[in-house]
Nucleic acid binder design. Structure first.
Lengths: 347, 347
DNA sequence: ATTAGCACTCATAATAATCGAGTGCTAATA
DNA sequence: TATTAGCACTCGATTATTATGAGTGCTAAT
């Protein structure tokens, strides 16, 4: 009989597939027909179960580590399972997850590390957090400080309480008094705009406009130098140690996936950044991560917003055999809580 | 014959002990008499070597993992080896290690992470860095910024370019203009003093002294709140992944030492802080670390100074079987380079 | 003090034997 | 036609068995 690999599962197959994957997520052992029908009280004989499993294997949802062992989910299988979860998950439920909890215990600046740490603690995997793209943040206050020689430190504070610092080197020395005037000018003129807006239009406007402030040009020079190269978003990963406690992550070559992730944080950064255009939760399973040096891992991530604009992302990194059912809501409402907090702060 | 465990080794024993330990550090395998005499071209028979090894074992410098295996160094053995290294190492050699290299590539603030990262890269173990105790740093500039409600953010910049931020909550709202006056007052009065001095004497002096500035008291209230609880030194650990590549660190229970270190950074912090009173390089081997949850690990660390005062510490964390001969100079001159840089910056 | 010689030890590796949870397939059954 | 019982077969995991060889300690000779 010709099997179409993309044919739609019937209800029984669907239920059984999800149950098998659930069982595997919980136990970590290949699922065999006999013990499985028994444990889940299916009114089916093991033989029938074997037939169904055989079909699901031919459809690429399951595989056998070796002939005559039980079945294990494929990436496609996990994907099916996760899509089932997603379709039944209510994203609109009000979680009484209080963002005040976040705001209270978090030092303005440390919020990103703290959230990553929290995600890792609650999930028992690794928590990841990409700080908001500085370009999207709105400046509130700018201060210039004379360092040695002709170096100037520009400190800017965003509405959300992030502190950005940037050292610039000027061609000629400027006095601290001048810098002081510049600071005032910049705070007045740039405050309330995002770095993106400033770079795109405000600079131009200020340059052409006449101003009573004769330090205008020095001030703009400094600000342009400082804001020029866009600061990268910071990425923090916490709770690697959790992953080391998972046997399957420490096994031989799997360990290398982990080391790659730690050493090349840019891989993760890229993955999270690629999500900034979309909203809500995204789940990447196994090869879907799209990096051959990382195998057997999954990422559950969510963007978070200031107002209506996604500015950053956060999530959980763990083994493909991950407790998605628990992680999905965790990541979802953490994203919402962070969005809520940042949005409130930026008003 | 009665053996005194503390008797002094003769020259031959000493040379052989050091060679055995060197061999073990290189190969990681228990050192046996036959292959050892051969490899090192000792004009001794294996039998004689066995006798000497037997003696060294009775003196606690060596041990056998099991009867009839080769010898492996004990902590005492490593200690002997390291002391030999230390006594022949010339701490006064001018290393043409250019601290400008440090200064150039390092963003003021990031210096601590960067140094830790550098230590880990060069050593192939983990690099650790304890930032200067804020109390010992000299303030240069203070800025107060109005946040929402009656919260104020105090940003202080130290002479070495560190940026400290602290959020304080006031009992009543203060205007941004008032804060501005306060900032000026605080910068003028506190600039040039260390936080320690400020807490110990300057506050008291300013409180009693009359001042023309009528915001004096508000200013001092804020500063005292902010400087009150001493900020902890930040500790950063980089290069854990290097340790994961070392087979003996990943073995069963040894992995736990590692996880303990990662999870409880305070253990390391304590160890490094305990060194702040002394100068120069210190090596802790195995149980000398004094924490039963950490076994088979060593720390080579050095304090670093601003001027003549040790303010922080840095070092390398790795397995007891560590390449001390390479790590000792690395840590020594990194300490000196950081001292040099910070001292220069703070002038 | 050193060394040759020898019996002994024991981790490691290789080989074989057993076990059991699992499979696929066929023929009987509802 | 879908389900099931029965059965031979597979194969990873576990345990037992047997080399192998680099190592030791000890004794007696040099």
């Amino acid at each position: 009989m010709e099997q179409n690999k993309d044919r739609i599962l019937n209800d029984r197959e669907s239920a059984i597939l999800n149950a098998i994957i659930y069982e595997y997520i919980v136990t970590g052992k290949p699922v065999g027909s006999r013990s499985f029908v028994q444990k889940y009280s299916f009114s089916l004989s093991p033989a029938t179960m074997r037939n169904i499993m055989y079909d699901l294997e031919k459809l690429d949802y399951l595989m056998q580590p070796h002939t005559s062992s039980g079945r294990v989910p494929t990436d496609k299988g996990y994907r099916y399972y996760v899509d089932s979860l997603l379709s039944s998950y209510d994203f609109n439920t009000e979680h009484h997850f209080d963002e005040k909890v976040l705001a209270r215990e978090l030092q303005l600046d440390k919020i990103f590390d703290s959230v990553a740490k929290m995600l890792s603690t609650v999930s028992s995997y690794a928590g990841i957090m990409l700080s908001p793209r500085p370009d999207f943040t709105v400046l509130k206050f700018i201060e210039l400080i004379q360092l040695e020689n002709s170096e100037v430190l520009m400190i800017s504070i965003t509405r959300t309480g992030m502190i950005l610092t940037k050292k610039v080197t000027l061609s000629e020395r400027v006095t601290q008094d001048d810098l002081f005037l510049c600071s005032r000018f910049l705070t007045t003129e740039l405050g309330g705009y995002s770095i993106e807006e400033i770079k795109d239009t405000i600079f131009l406007k200020l340059r052409t406009e006449k101003s009573s402030n004769d330090r205008k040009d020095v001030a703009l020079d400094i600000a342009q130098l400082a804001l020029n190269e866009s600061n990268d978003s910071a990425i923090s990963i916490e709770g690697i140690e959790n992953l080391l406690r998972i046997p399957e992550m420490v096994e031989a070559d799997r360990l290398n996936s982990l080391l790659n992730i730690i050493e090349e944080k840019n891989i993760l950064r890229g993955l999270l950044e690629s999500q900034l255009n979309s909203e809500g939760v995204r789940i990447l399973i196994g090869d879907e991560i799209g990096n051959p040096s990382i195998t057997g891992c999954s990422i559950v991530s969510s963007s978070y917003k200031i107002g209506n604009r996604p500015v950053g992302a956060l999530g959980v990194f763990g083994p493909t055999r991950m407790d998605y059912e628990k992680i999905l809501p965790l990541v979802d409402y953490t994203g919402k809580a962070v969005s809520g907090l940042l949005t409130k702060l930026s008003k």
